[in-house]
């Protein structure tokens, strides 16, 4: 059974196994440094659909189907799907998974949703409520632009702190078993808000949430940054990563060389015009599903903290002058089912 450890962390006694994962991406993602991690690439941003919203749904559907195919399973072998995205009412998940017949737990955690879905699915598994679950999130540059910023053809300039919403989706299949990697623990984030109002600087808005969740995890588990091979943040970008390191250094944790960010890994900042880095639910999801999970499975990484950060805002409240509240959920992933820094 999942048990509470400290104030914020949930410890998995029989750690759920990630039995397969898959990711789908677009043209920009293919041209980035991680271009070869994708199972499927579609260079047409419409994915052969009439609208970008339909395209994003299609991406989730493709990612889930691919993850199932890799595990040699059909949809009816999955007890529950845990999915979400950035669009109003999480429509990409709803319409992407429509027709698959899998019970759906729709989640919203903005860009933190991939970690949120892994956390919820792991607890469902630990409780014996399901025997297999699929986690899936997506984001699409064009749907996010339309919903949060300007029409696509509108001529605007982005400041260097802005981030680029990834056109990508990732899906991971969780089950009981012995196949590496494993979800060992999760820390559910608290809502943090240090008053950032600039929607063009999401990294800065989310860094305090990431710092808080990491600190909570270290406190709850009596561990320190050196115990882990890597701490991968969701999508803080360059600006947010700098701030996260600074915030934690002041609290006595030195992340240097051990922290990296999905938003900075997915694109090449020198050649691709992505400013501070990538963002969106699909960014962290695809880097996790296509890159980190395979590395853990191959034992090239042993213990990592995957922490996706999300800005929990809507254009409405930002226009009303509200600051950007944010959250970060942490997943402790390990190539081993037991042992390591957190054996208790």
């Amino acid at each position: 059974m999942a048990t509470r450890k400290g104030r914020y962390t949930i410890w998995m006694e029989d750690p759920p196994s990630i039995i397969s994962s898959a990711c789908v991406g677009g043209k920009m993602e293919q041209e980035g440094p991680l271009g070869n991690i994708f199972d499927l690439i579609e260079r047409d941003s419409y994915f052969g659909q009439e609208s970008w919203e339909k395209a994003e749904s299609k991406m989730q559907s493709l990612a889930v189907h691919k993850a199932l195919e890799k595990a040699g399973l059909e949809g009816d072998a999955v007890d529950c799907a845990f999915a979400g995205d950035l669009l109003n009412q999480c429509i990409s998940s709803t319409y992407g998974l429509r027709g698959m017949g899998i019970p759906l737990v729709g989640l919203f955690g903005a860009c933190s949703t991939m970690a949120e879905s892994l956390a919820v699915a792991s607890v469902f598994l630990e409780a014996g409520a399901i025997s297999r679950g699929v986690c899936c999130t997506s984001s699409h540059f064009c749907t996010a632009e339309r919903q949060f910023r300007y029409p696509l053809e509108y001529g605007g300039q982005r400041p260097p702190t802005a981030q680029w919403t990834a056109t990508a989706s990732g899906a991971a299949l969780l089950a009981k078993g012995e196949q590496s990697p494993f979800v060992r623990a999760v820390t559910i984030g608290t809502i943090e808000d240090l008053g950032v109002t600039d929607a063009n600087n999401m990294g800065a808005a989310m860094a305090p949430a990431a710092a808080m969740t990491l600190e909570h995890f270290f406190n709850d588990t009596q561990t320190k940054p050196e115990d882990f091979d890597l701490m991968v943040t969701g999508d803080l970008g360059r600006v947010g990563s700098t701030l996260l390191r600074q915030l934690l250094l002041e609290r006595g944790y030195n992340l240097e060389h051990r922290q990296t960010d999905c938003g900075m890994m997915l694109y090449n900042p020198q050649e691709q015009d992505v400013h501070s880095g990538g963002s969106g639910c699909g960014c962290a999801a695809s880097v996790l599903c296509g890159h980190l999970i395979p590395l853990l499975r191959a034992q090239k990484l042993r213990h990592i903290l995957f922490m996706a950060t999300g800005a929990l805002m809507s254009p409405t409240v930002v226009q009303q002058g509200e600051s950007i509240a944010s959250i970060a959920h942490l997943i402790y992933l390990s190539s081993e089912k037991s042992g390591g820094p957190l054996s208790c």
Partner: peptide, 8 residues
């Protein structure tokens, strides 16, 4: 006549 496209 036209359809919007992704940037870049």
């Amino acid at each position: 006549l036209f359809k919007p496209k992704e940037k870049n």
